[in-house]
Computed example of a mutant assay.
Amino acid sequence: MTKTCLVVDDSRAVRRVVRRILEDLSFTVSEAENGQVALEVCSSAMPDAILLDWNMPLSDGPSFLKALRSRPDGSTPKVIFCTSQSELDNITRAIDYGANEYIMKPFDSDLIKEKLCEVGLITTN
């Protein structure tokens, strides 16, 4: 069965690049430009994975993640923060809020593949 991933980032360019990487890994991809839209997407179909930006308008990554994890089905997706927020405090907060992994921008397909492997969504050959 095909895995699904929601890419949440306010940058259309970042979403496009990440979509291409994920589709190459056989994921079905949906997109959201902020946490508010992402919650709506999750309400209609909870994805297997969420790649989440930190800084976004309306609803940022941490706010989205807290709202997601408080839902009855909110523990299902593996959440990987993809952000330029490198401070140890922010990484710790992301994990406390329920993130499974953390990727620093800029990233490449190998790093995304590695993190998806670490959270158990793909296997490497």
Rank of each mutant, 00 (worst) to 15 (best):
residue 47 P to G: 11
residue 32 A to H: 01
residue 25 L to G: 02
residue 54 W to P: 03
residue 89 D to P: 00
residue 21 I to V: 14
residue 36 Q to M: 11
residue 35 G to N: 02
residue 55 N to E: 15
residue 74 G to Q: 07
residue 12 R to W: 07
residue 30 S to G: 08
residue 98 G to E: 10
residue 65 L to S: 05
residue 100 N to P: 00
residue 84 S to K: 05
residue 94 A to V: 03
residue 41 V to F: 03
residue 12 R to C: 11
residue 92 T to A: 13
residue 69 R to P: 02
residue 87 E to H: 02
residue 13 A to V: 12
residue 85 Q to A: 15
residue 81 F to A: 12
residue 60 D to E: 11
residue 103 I to S: 10
residue 17 V to H: 01
residue 52 L to D: 08
residue 79 V to C: 13
residue 66 K to N: 13
residue 78 K to R: 14
residue 65 L to I: 09
residue 12 R to P: 06
residue 62 P to N: 06
residue 103 I to M: 15
residue 19 R to L: 07
residue 48 D to Q: 04
residue 30 S to Q: 12
residue 99 A to K: 06
residue 33 E to K: 01
residue 71 R to S: 14
residue 89 D to L: 05
residue 25 L to C: 05
residue 40 E to R: 03
residue 14 V to F: 06
residue 60 D to C: 06
residue 85 Q to K: 09
residue 70 S to L: 13
residue 91 I to T: 02
residue 48 D to G: 09
residue 94 A to Y: 04
residue 96 D to H: 05
residue 103 I to R: 06
residue 96 D to Q: 05
residue 9 D to G: 01
residue 12 R to T: 14
residue 50 I to V: 15
residue 20 R to Y: 12
residue 9 D to I: 06
residue 94 A to D: 10
residue 59 S to M: 15
residue 100 N to Y: 02
residue 40 E to K: 08
residue 61 G to L: 03
residue 50 I to W: 03
residue 89 D to F: 00
residue 98 G to C: 06
residue 78 K to A: 15
residue 71 R to E: 15
residue 88 L to A: 14
residue 41 V to R: 12
residue 43 S to T: 06
residue 45 A to C: 10
residue 61 G to A: 10
residue 39 L to P: 00
residue 90 N to F: 11
residue 49 A to N: 06
residue 106 P to H: 07
residue 88 L to Y: 05
residue 73 D to F: 09
residue 46 M to W: 01
residue 48 D to F: 06
residue 81 F to K: 04
residue 21 I to W: 15
residue 44 S to V: 11
residue 106 P to S: 11
residue 65 L to Y: 07
residue 54 W to D: 04
residue 30 S to I: 03
residue 44 S to R: 13
residue 94 A to I: 07
residue 66 K to I: 08
residue 62 P to I: 08
residue 28 T to Y: 11
residue 88 L to Q: 14
residue 49 A to R: 00
residue 74 G to P: 01
residue 23 E to F: 06
residue 26 S to G: 05
residue 98 G to M: 10
residue 72 P to E: 15
residue 90 N to C: 09
residue 95 I to T: 08
residue 12 R to G: 14
residue 45 A to E: 15
residue 28 T to S: 11
residue 72 P to N: 10
residue 99 A to Q: 02
residue 67 A to W: 02
residue 104 M to I: 14
residue 65 L to A: 07
residue 95 I to Y: 14
residue 41 V to M: 09
residue 90 N to S: 14
residue 58 L to T: 09
residue 97 Y to Q: 10
residue 30 S to L: 10
residue 42 C to M: 07
residue 97 Y to R: 03
residue 10 D to Y: 02
residue 40 E to H: 04
residue 64 F to E: 07
residue 35 G to S: 04
residue 93 R to E: 13
residue 98 G to I: 07
residue 59 S to G: 06
residue 68 L to A: 08
residue 58 L to E: 11
residue 38 A to W: 01
residue 82 C to L: 15
residue 19 R to P: 00
residue 97 Y to E: 15
residue 73 D to T: 12
residue 14 V to W: 05
residue 52 L to Y: 05
residue 44 S to N: 07
residue 95 I to R: 07
residue 22 L to D: 05
residue 106 P to G: 06
residue 67 A to S: 15
residue 23 E to L: 05
residue 51 L to R: 00
residue 37 V to H: 04
residue 67 A to C: 12
residue 89 D to E: 13
residue 99 A to W: 04
residue 39 L to C: 09
residue 27 F to M: 08
residue 103 I to D: 10
residue 54 W to S: 03
residue 39 L to Q: 05
residue 83 T to A: 13
